[in-house]
Design a protein around this nucleic acid. Sequence first.
RNA 1: GGGCGAGUGGCGGAAUUGGUAGACGCGCUGGAUUUAGGUUCCAGUCCCGCGAGGGGUGGGGGUUCGAGUCCCCCCUUGCCCACCA
Length: 978
Amino acid sequence: MRDRYEPGEFEAGWRAKWAGAGLFKTREEEGREKFYAADFFPYPSGAGLSVGHCRNYVPTDVLCRMKVMQGFNVLHPMGFDAFGLPAEVEAIKRKTHPAPMIDQYAANYRRQMDLIGVSYDWSRSFKSSDPEFYRWTQWVFSLLYKKGLAYRKDASVNWCPFDKTVLADEEVVGGLCWRCNNPVEKKNVPQWFFKITAYADRLVDDLDGLDWPEGIKAQQRNWIGRSEGVEFEMVIAAQNAGSTAAEHGGPVAQQPDDHRSATGQPLDDELAALKAEVAAEGGAGDWDKQYKIDDITKKLDKAQEGLAKGTAKFERAVMNIKPDDSESFQILEREKRASFRVFTTRIDTIFGMTFCVLAPEHALVAKIFDVVDAQRSVELRDYIDRAKRMSEADRTAATREKTGVFTGVYAINPANGKRVPVWIADYVMMGYGTGAIMAVPAHDERDHEFATKYGLDVVPVIAPSGGPVATDSNPTATGKPQGSLPDLPFSTKDGVMINSGEYDGLTVQEGQQKLTEWITALGIGEKKRNCKLRDWLISRQRYWGCPIPVIHQADGTMDVVRDQDLPVELPDVDRYEPGEDGSSPLAHIPDFVNVTDHDGRLGRRETDTMGGFACSSWYFLRFCDPHNDEKAWDPERVKYWMPVDCYVGGAEHAVMHLLYARFWTKFLFDEGLVTVQEPFARLKNQGQVLGRTPYRRPKENENLQVGEEGVLVSYEEAKTLPEKDVTWRWVRMSKSKGNVVTPDEAVEQFGADALRLWELFVAPFDADVEWTNDGMNGTARFLSRLFKLAHDLAGVYDRDWHAKIAQAPTDGVGRELRRSTHKFVAKATKDIDGFAFNTYVAAAMEHLNTVNDLLKKATMTDAEKLALSEMIELTVLCLSPAAPHTTDEIWEGLGHKGFTYDQKWPTADPDLAKDDTVTIAVQVNGKLRDTIEMPADATGEQLEAAARQSEKAKPHYEAMTVRKVVVVAGKLVNIVAN
RNA sequence: GGGCGAGUGGCGGAAUUGGUAGACGCGCUGGAUUUAGGUUCCAGUCCCGCGAGGGGUGGGGGUUCGAGUCCCCCCUUGCCCACCA
């Protein structure tokens, strides 16, 4: 047996033997538990793998290898996310076709993955661009289409003029394209969407049951952005066409409204009972009951058609418009109830509404043109046109000052009957809620900024908790008004209502409930949940993607391609560049476009393709049954393997891939095609690997991009520059930064197992790493020590140790060896399961150090020889997942045939691992003064007695009175004295 | 601005979850072996102090017999989201 780690001599040989034996072929044997682990579906970039990718693949591999040894049926597949923009862009740049290019890149990825010994079952591998795969992507599309969850509509979409493609919302980062960082524009074209919003509630609610990093769950919740509030109707009041700006928001005489009377309508018993329950519970927080109440209320309202609308109460509260003879008013009258709806999460602040804002795209804006004078109409048009032209980036720039324009019309605040001016401003987004808001400048920063700029009223209606504050409507309250309110605006929910009529004094929570009840009873509003999440824009006007399987008929209708006619194959063409106008290249291929459907009708194929995230939304299902050409999968196979027990990849996919895959899985669950509602039971994000990257100072007259602090240079150039002009920064490894360390070079220099161990050991799994090769010296050294130890013990190794060791004496060095061995077995098992790979490797090193120390004391008794046999065998097996080449080499050197991968994972004996003496800390007043060795099972009395004997501790309390002695079994004795 | 996280030797990081801070490794220092070393082995390595001892986990307070760990305030920093009503 070799006595040192010489990776060049044996590692490649073992990889060949593993492949030859089909070692990593998935087993589906009866009577074993299953374990499905997957790494994120990688796009095979031309740059190849870096040591950063390995930080994803090696830990998963270690876990899978242990699970195999523990007797699980393990599914550990790998495939390639071949379709999509990155591949197409690269192919265009290299003036080649994406298909052969991707094949070449994927082959290189596979070569590199094999090089570091990852145990993928390549017999299950596929690329998303294989027709045998995307046939079923199209099939899922057709299922979604049939359920109304895939639809086509004209949409203002994110358009990247540089990449000439439409982007999903998730692909727009700060108004810039996620791929090329160019500003994204708005463009109005027909597009395909998946109705992910229909699943928004479940996508939020089901996060709770997932073993995922909390940060990722929070990001998904935040992205979906569910919020609960009230949506209600605001009715337009007119004003004189020639009225002055001074009238904006000017107070009008308040009508003595009786809000509560509106709730006095007859209620059915159930409703009354529910309300009583809510009241009994303190009245706050129980949304489920609230929803029930709302439901019943709505039904009641419908049953008694017009109850609310027909009542005088309603007329008084809502149609409280000052009679006025202006032409505009008459038009509005004719329109009958010109109105708009607003959404608020703070209905409790409704009395503080001093104006309303419509998004420039709001439908009501067109009507307003008709009722305002010519000059104002020009102003409005001008503002709206400018808003439309503006890019998303400009419009949403956080630093931008708010702009807006008064429409000339007013709406009625239903709470107090006051007229409030209606403005148009682009800080209100058409895509969220109703595209219109009630503005409460006292308690909303954005509204406050706007109100300040345009001189609109600010009326505080909440006083933070800490005592009632005197107000107009409650002048006798005990608190002093002056200085009691913090600077406006503030948005606390921990406060009481003021300036709110009969609601004064209620807490925010009480107010929300009462006002919601009131506005619901009034019939102009109801509780509502809103989401920031929008439907998933899936179509791309690009070549390199999965074709959307739809045929447009001559009569303007659409048909989805029949299952038996799938796949709609991507035509093999020479030219596939996108058109300048944003049209799909497929649209220019007559053979593709013109189609005769199964009924013999002439039609036109849909020429859009799907964005790459469609493929990655179900590939993990295909791995369960990858070669099925009858169906996308056999439900039995998917039922067996799903869910993915452990899913590993980078945190950058927190919202896109992971949200889409969850959506498809839920949809397929609803269709009865899969048995799980969630695809990934456990998710782990590895930390990023950063490479040392040189930047030089900008030269004179050289402009830096915003956010850049220097000019990126190559290592070669950095060497030629004076030291003071170069700053080294840690930047994520990428080809473009020139800071990539490849596994190829690391394996060449240090060996695959040294690389694997270093990937595990370098830092906690989820921590970012500033990569240096130096550490691999340490892991290679460790492997050499392991070889040396095995080499030296080969002569005493008795492979029948197991049968004999029970009879051997259990004391001295032999006992110590066994203790260290079993401690390591326990630690390795626990740490691998817990993704604590760094401490797993550290424990192996510590164990080896202990063994080497013990060996110096050993006299090679029979008992010691057996303990050493056990030690070397179990140590090798427990290191097999991390350093498989090395352990197989040693295994063979010890006289075994086959692979450690096929061996049974050792089980630790807790009795053997247990210490029989422990070091007890002797503290005086919490300060360490001495340590004493005691039997592990010593009683508290014995510990205290021994501690009191300590000569080192005595001087520190002799002169004092001992007040108490704290004894912690197995840990310490603390003598408290003063 | 919001959400989540993190601050421990020269460096990466350990710490049984409130119980001996610095495991393990890198680097460094000294020694041995070697023709040589990007080799191997041995010893040392938180700071101050000759010493007994003292100080020490970003800073300040608190709870406790005892705090890296829990609570409050502050500072620094990473990532994600960002006019979402």
